[in-house]
Computed example of a mutant assay.
Amino acid sequence: MKTTLMAVLATTTLITGTAQADEIIFAHGANPGNPRTVAAEKWAELFTACTNGATTVNVAPSATMGDDAEMLTSAIAGVIQVTANSQGAMSQIVPEIGLLGLPFLFKDLPTAWAVLDGEVGDMIDARAQNAGLKVLGFWDNGVRNVSHVSKTVSAPADLTGMKIRTPPDQMTVDIFEALGASPAPLAFSELPTALQSGVFDGQENPLVNIYSSKIHEITPFITLTGHKYESTPVVVGLAWWSGLDEATQTCAVTATADAGRMQRQMVAASDADLIPTMEAEGVTFAEADKTAYQAATRSVYDKYAEQYPELVAALRDAAGL
């Protein structure tokens, strides 16, 4: 796969970001079976059909083109054109997107989607364009839960001193520091090896990511903490985007929305479907004391309300808090 992609890079004119080529690259970090993978393939199908075959899409899954941060850099540089990326990695470029991960912000997924599809999403897109990226829309990365190699963590005290992997996202680090854990960021592609070698006691992810990456086989104790929400921003390099005609731009936005509706529903259905499946494969589940977790992470709101007072207030209002 990587050889094929590099051959594409050698022949495409898109590296300049100034013209539309016959073939573009849509890169992401998810493995086969993940809703992000399914949606990326659907996006390619829809976009190719919409452009009447004038532009086709080479989908590069499983971090073939680098981790999320590297893919964002590649999109800005015009090395790839599209990426279904992560909220954590993008927060390093657009810090405001990290506010979507405030602990226990959204009561359910439809609420999160409504917020992202409104003014908040437009605000994040405007900030992204200042950094050389264009947001086509927001897919879903679900509500996150904690998995551990040897125990459940129903109470915040159970996390004390826990070595937990987080994405490269300051919000997540802040949440687990407030809970008394010892968090450290690491690229998702490196997580299984780090867990197996004992670098971490556990990690946090949506169930669908835990299952599709077989992390439940290494950390078979999962606590349904639901501590934060994460989106999957679908972004393109602004230079490439600016070189497209209006009809092709419309095809890209429409493909993102249509594939996104399917992807969001897959994520929404995944928890209920996966719990019995994972239990049958040896996973032990536990419920978290949400009231205690919310109380323990209140200081995270204080920090970001001081840093982004208007945005945090607007988010809380939009989320109905």
Rank of each mutant, 00 (worst) to 15 (best):
I25T: 14
E45L: 13
D302I: 13
L9F: 06
A10H: 02
V59M: 04
A288D: 03
K228D: 15
A268E: 14
L224A: 06
P309S: 14
T3A: 12
I97K: 00
A292I: 11
A54Q: 08
T55H: 03
V143Y: 08
A184V: 14
T111G: 00
F285R: 04
T4E: 14
I164D: 09
V82Q: 08
T254C: 10
R261N: 13
V153K: 01
V57T: 01
A319F: 02
P309A: 11
S154L: 11
N141F: 13
A295I: 06
G260R: 03
A114F: 00
E287F: 10
G226Y: 14
N205T: 14
T297V: 09
H216L: 13
C50G: 13
I124L: 04
F104S: 04
R261Q: 14
N52M: 01
A269T: 07
T223V: 06
A131K: 12
D273P: 12
A10E: 07
L9I: 09
T152M: 05
V300W: 05
Y304Q: 02
G88T: 06
A288W: 04
A286T: 02
G142N: 02
E281G: 05
F176N: 04
V149P: 01
G101S: 15
Q265Y: 12
L133N: 02
P276G: 10
S91A: 12
S147K: 07
G118N: 06
T55G: 10
I93W: 06
T297G: 07
D245C: 10
T219I: 09
D158W: 05
A252Y: 01
E306A: 15
D289P: 02
L72M: 07
V57Q: 00
A128N: 01
V236C: 02
G282N: 03
S154V: 13
T219E: 02
L100N: 07
T16H: 05
V208K: 04
S150M: 12
A313C: 05
P233G: 09
A30C: 11
T73I: 11
A280R: 09
P220T: 01
F188C: 11
I24W: 01
A239F: 09
T172W: 15
